[in-house]
């Protein structure tokens, strides 16, 4: 885990409530904390001009989807994100998936779920219930993208697609 990741991670507020979607009472509490953490994280990112994803959830907050992007050679590569909050959350980490890239890389499970690094799971287990979705993004998807996207571009497995949606730089 590099310094910048650590720094990013430490600036994300930790969560307190240990509750899954099945815990009717505590889940909204937990969800609140999740949102707060995410807002903080996004804020931080925006302050550092390192905004790299958009997320939103369904009404009860069990399913999340959105977009993430990566700049490489001054080009923006954008991918869809989707994942469910597992029942055993927060003991079990959410499995983030990039369905577009399914089958294009070895570091991916079926359905486009990314293979997280070996550090991720023990770190997560150690920090239950302090880590939430924001942590999973910063700790899991961020590094994964930084490693895999340039590799995939180098292999020519992903091409740059001009997005109609104007990217503000």
């Amino acid at each position: 885990m590099d310094d910048s990741t650590k720094k990013t991670l430490s600036s994300i507020p930790l969560l307190k409530t240990k509750a899954g979607p099945r815990d009717k009472d505590l889940w909204p509490q937990r969800l609140k904390e999740e949102y707060q953490a995410l807002i903080q994280y996004v804020k931080n990112n925006k302050d550092a001009d390192q905004d790299w994803f958009r997320l939103e959830s369904n009404s009860d907050g069990t399913r999340w989807f959105g977009k993430c992007w990566y700049f490489y050679n001054q080009m923006k590569y954008e991918f869809d994100i989707e994942f469910d909050i597992p029942v055993t959350f927060p003991v079990t980490a959410p499995e983030i998936a990039l369905p577009e890239l399914d089958g294009k890389t070895a570091k991916m499970y079926r359905g486009g779920k990314i293979c997280l690094s070996d550090h991720f799971k023990p770190l997560w287990a150690k920090n239950v219930p302090k880590f939430g979705i924001a942590h999973a993004m910063a700790l899991g998807l961020g590094p994964w993208l930084a490693v895999e996207v340039p590799d995939l571009i180098g292999k020519g497995l992903i091409q740059y697609k001009e997005k109609s949606e104007g990217e503000k730089s």
């Binding site: 949102y35 995410l38 302050d47 959830s57 503000k168 730089s169």
Partner: peptide, 15 residues
């Protein structure tokens, strides 16, 4: 909070 989050996400990006 979700609305806030969305707002946050969209607002201050190009600053």
């Amino acid at each position: 909070l979700a609305a806030d989050f969305q707002r946050t996400q969209f607002s201050s990006a190009a600053q």
